[in-house]
Design a binder for these strands. Structure first.
Lengths: 188, 188
DNA sequence: TTGATTATTTGACGAATGTCAAAGGATTCT
DNA sequence: AGAATCCTTTGACATTCGTCAAATAATCAA
């Protein structure tokens, strides 16, 4: 499982055997049962998480209500950006929507080792660049696409989401009310 | 001017004299008159731009209309994320709203040198981490704040914007119509 | 299975916002 | 100054969307 994960990282930037060995010490695998948290509220996010199997939802609380930020499915990465970089307690919660196998890459394995190992620095740069592009795309989709289009896009790219989480979570992810989403759905 | 810029970079991550000398070759200063472009449409974004003096607007076209993405004022950084990382032609335009002094850091100075110089790799990581946090904050503000709150926040953080650009640009930045912004303004 | 809980849909209504149109200000250029 | 252009405000109206409330459907546990 860990070799596969290293191979996945290698796609971002080539990693020598020595670097892979170095990284191994910062990699751990955890099984998270449905309903449990991959990242708890107020916990400092010390890892980049990789959903090897299963499915997770990222959300936080806004005015007492859950607001879904993202769904992380098969082989997606996820982490709390602010907490990870600043070492502050996370407002973001990451919850396993179903039993999940999660591979964790400790931040020291990236942020510390990157200071001395250029390969790891490259890995970090590539991973963060990727996150940055994703974040950018997300902003654009929110700004320029209607809720309806974004729903259709979600259907297109992550069809399994619709089976796995309640409508209300998808609605909060799209930034619209549950009723509106229900009505959008009725017309498709 | 360039020493000051290096000092600014040094705030992200400490840079030795040798590294600073190395970076210098990738730094250039350009004067951009009002109305001219810092980054043209369809041009590949080969630099991270730093607005030393003056003021710029980032925007692109959506259905034939200009949509403002961001304002870059005093000592702000800006670049087209997608174009910069992928080397694709930029959809984003960066226009000088007033005569501006722009310091450009060539992407080779970051992406290439970071492969061999760990200090530059750290700089890259810190800069991209910062961009990532900004991007994240922007997304949250769009999703969870009303247009009115975002306008007030803009007034709070970049009050000079209101003097410098027409209302329509601010409205498109906020994602609302010009008329709505005018009405919001009438009530403040 | 049955009842309890949770999830989804539907209807009615009001608030917020977009669009179209027009008027009034402000700025720029000659 | 005067004309032309650009910018901003205002009004009227239609549309979208959120909220509240209730009904229906689906899921789960005893």
């Amino acid at each position: 499982m860990i070799p596969q994960f290293l191979k996945r990282l290698d796609e971002f930037s080539t990693l020598s055997d020595a670097t892979q060995a170095q990284l191994q010490e910062y990699i751990s695998v955890v099984e998270v049962p449905k309903g449990e948290f991959i990242l708890k509220h107020q916990e400092v996010c010390r890892y980049i998480f990789y959903i090897e199997a299963g499915f997770a939802r990222q959300y936080y609380y806004k005015d007492g209500k859950e607001v879904t930020e993202w769904f992380a499915g098969n082989r997606d990465f996820c982490f709390s950006i602010t907490s990870y970089f600043d070492g502050t307690p996370s407002n973001l919660l990451i919850e396993a929507v179903e039993d999940s196998t999660v591979i964790r890459l400790h931040r020291d394995g990236i942020l510390q080792l990157s200071k001395t190992n250029p390969e790891i620095a490259q890995l970090a740069i590539q991973m963060f660049a990727r996150s940055l592009k994703f974040s950018q795309l997300r902003t654009e989709s929110i700004l320029f696409q209607s809720a309806r289009d974004r729903y259709l896009h979600l259907l297109d790219t992550k069809p399994y989401v619709i089976q796995k989480v309640p409508l209300a979570h998808i609605a909060s992810f799209l930034g619209i009310s549950q009723e509106t989403l229900s009505r959008i759905r009725a017309k498709v």
